[in-house]
Structures are given as C-alpha cells and as structure tokens.
Amino acid sequence: MNLGNSIRAYLKIFKEPFMDEKGGKVFEWENNNRVRFRAVTDKIKGEGDNFHSTPSDELIITFYSDRNLKERMEFKNPLVKEYYKITKQKM
C-alpha cells in the first residue's frame, strides 16, 4: 500500500483531514477489500534528532488497520462514516 496515494485519494474526496481532540489530523479510508485504515499526523514539536529531514512540518504519528481484527474499526470522522455507509448502499 502506498500511504501517500491513499491520503491524496482521501483529500480528493473530503478536501481536508478530520481534526481530533489533540489537534492531530486524521485520515481514514476503506479499500476495495473493505479493510479500514487510519493515519494520524501531527506537528513536529522540535523533539527528537535532527538527522532526519522532511519537506513538511508534520509526521505520521500513528497508523492503524483493522485487517486482522474481528471487529471493524469505527471511523472517527462522521463524514467518512456517512460516505462509506452510502457507498455500500449503492453496491
């Protein structure tokens, strides 16, 4: 999976990330196999080493998938939840 392509596809549909209660940007999606994913980014706070350079001031701080879980991941973003609910109804 290419995380960058998935985030760009998310932004094409939803235009902006969902902001969580801690200020992180949440990107959520479901692939063609109905596996759900979540990536969260946050601002770099100047902590850690200076050996890694990034073109952005944000880092992926968590990545999650329900691929191997018995229960489905619940989307945090209500717009994403509604989008996939409607998409499934059309199938």
Rank of each mutant, 00 (worst) to 15 (best):
K22W: 04
M1T: 08
P55M: 01
V26L: 10
N32G: 13
T87P: 00
F37K: 12
D42P: 01
V26G: 11
N32C: 11
D49P: 02
F63I: 07
T62G: 10
G48Q: 03
K43Y: 11
D42W: 04
P17E: 07
D57A: 13
Y10D: 09
E16C: 14
E28M: 10
G4A: 12
K15E: 13
K25F: 03
S53Q: 11
K88F: 00
W29D: 04
R38D: 01
E16W: 03
T41R: 09
E30N: 04
T41N: 11
V80H: 09
A39L: 01
L69T: 07
K76V: 02
F18D: 10
F27H: 04
F18T: 05
G23R: 02
S53L: 06
P17C: 07
E21Y: 00
M1C: 08
K85D: 00
P17D: 08
K22G: 07
L3N: 05
M73V: 06
G48M: 02
I13L: 13
S6R: 14
E28R: 10
N32E: 14
S56T: 12
N5R: 14
Y10R: 08
V35M: 15
F14P: 10
E28F: 02
R36E: 08
S53T: 09
R38L: 13
S53N: 05
I60L: 09
K70T: 01
K43D: 12
T62Q: 07
D49L: 03
N77D: 15
S65W: 04
F14S: 13
V80Q: 00
I86L: 15
I60P: 01
N77F: 01
Y83R: 02
F63A: 10
I44H: 12
T87S: 14
L59P: 02
I7W: 02
D42M: 12
G23Q: 07
R36M: 10
D20W: 02
Y64H: 09
R67P: 00
S53F: 04
Y83T: 03
I60D: 03
K22R: 10
G48S: 07
L3D: 07
S56P: 00
K43R: 13
E21M: 11
A39I: 06
K45D: 11
L59Y: 04
K70E: 14
G23M: 06
N31S: 13
D57K: 15
F14T: 07
K25T: 01
F63P: 02
K25Q: 12
L11F: 05
E21R: 13
R38S: 12
E21Q: 14
F75A: 03
K15I: 08
L59N: 09
G46S: 06
S6T: 01
N32D: 15
E28K: 11
Y84D: 04
E47C: 08
R36H: 10
P17K: 04
E30Y: 00
D66I: 12
G48D: 05
N68C: 05
S6N: 15
K76H: 03
A9V: 00
E74I: 05
E82W: 05
L3T: 08
R36Y: 12
D49K: 03
N2D: 14
K76T: 02
A39P: 01
N50C: 00
A39S: 06
M19N: 02
N2P: 03
R34K: 15
A9M: 13
D66F: 13
Y64K: 06
K70L: 11
K15L: 13
G46H: 01
T62C: 09
N33I: 08
